[in-house]
Write a protein that binds this DNA or RNA. Structure first.
Lengths: 193, 193
DNA sequence: TTGTTTATTGTACAGCGTTCAGCTAAATTG
DNA sequence: CAATTTAGCTGAACGCTGTACAATAAACAA
């Protein structure tokens, strides 16, 4: 650990290494544990060094949010039937979101990430809807509803629910079932019975 | 303004006056503008004086969240038909949430507030569902879905949507329509066609 | 009146995100 | 290859945050 750097010497950071370290830190310490200073320490670097690779903390988190969405499994809209495809994509999104509980409130606060991966998901959803004959404003409406529902449900699932003692802690299997039910109701309404 | 207080002298704060000032500050300055120090300044008091009336900032915000829900109009479950009643209560909730955009992400992060007003809403929803024959686990499931959908949609509505340039900024009337559509789909699924 | 509880202040701590100036290694240019 | 520019990094600092601790004075109880 005797690697004391003096001004001018480089640490070899990349945008990628910064994002990756931030991702790990987020998983280990949660959102509250993700500070620029903590990240800098983790990287063995002065706090402000990060600003050479990322504009600010907000931008960093934004990219993190989009990066997580890379794990969502996206069906091919040409070979998949609309209802089934949408169930798959939303369920996969839901699962991925559950893997990152601390991020979920952020998705909602920023309303769903804006990066390339989010774009990809949106495009596929759009294609699936079009395949089922849902286009134009109705498609936008439907997509919005599905996204909100999915993120929202993930938010509700990522901690003790609002009922403190009313019934048992409510296992994750049960929540997944709830999610699937509501999702199917929505899809039935969107695609027509 | 020459009212300099020395240690021991009282400012006459109450829990209510603190909460009320916090509420006003929140409306005027948004969530970022609501700091313990700013609130103290507003109250003409040292920052730590607030801690005599509220445990900490988290507790303060929690009570604020619940207080806002007091404005939700709740129909009488005995004289209101289930579908109509649920539409009314969810729409009113949605409207109230839209009046407090900065709070909405917090509702999601904390998953819907836990205070007495939230309890009241939950009870009425439960009664309406029961009236339509939805009871037991199905009722919990339905209520959860409706709450998530409503808060989630409010989150989506309280700022520029995820589509940057794709179409026009999407007016609030349009969003309300979207909300109503999705809500009706959910209710149809919940209550049966 | 005396004693106890409680609201308030002053002070302080540890942490945060971020900016600025300086240094120097690396990249670019001639 | 040498000169010059660019860019990654450090050190220091600013202003902000929530909150704990000890001292003080007002309110209340006996």
């Amino acid at each position: 650990m005797g690697e004391a750097r003096t001004p001018g010497q480089r640490a070899g950071l990349t945008r990628e290494s910064v994002l990756q370290a931030a991702h790990k830190l987020l998983i280990e310490r949660g959102l509250d544990g993700l500070s620029m200073r903590g990240l800098a320490t983790r990287l063995g670097v002065a706090p402000n060094a990060i600003y050479s690779h990322v504009a600010n903390k907000t931008a960093l988190v934004d990219e993190l949010l989009d990066e997580v969405l890379a794990a969502v499994v996206v069906p091919d809209p040409d070979t998949t039937e609309a209802n089934a495809g949408l169930v798959r994509i939303m369920t996969s999104s839901y699962t991925v979101l559950l893997d990152h509980p601390d991020l979920v409130p952020l998705y909602l606060a920023r309303q769903g990430a804006r990066g390339p991966h989010a774009q990809r998901l949106g495009d596929v959803m759009f294609a699936l809807l079009a395949q089922a004959g849902v286009t134009g404003p109705a498609a936008h409406e439907a997509r919005r509803v599905l996204i909100v529902y999915t993120i929202g449900f993930a938010a509700l699932s990522t901690s003790a629910g609002p009922e403190p003692s009313e019934d048992r802690p409510l296992g994750s299997a049960e929540l997944s079932g709830n999610f699937a039910s509501g999702l199917q109701w929505l899809l039935t309404g969107i695609l027509g019975a």
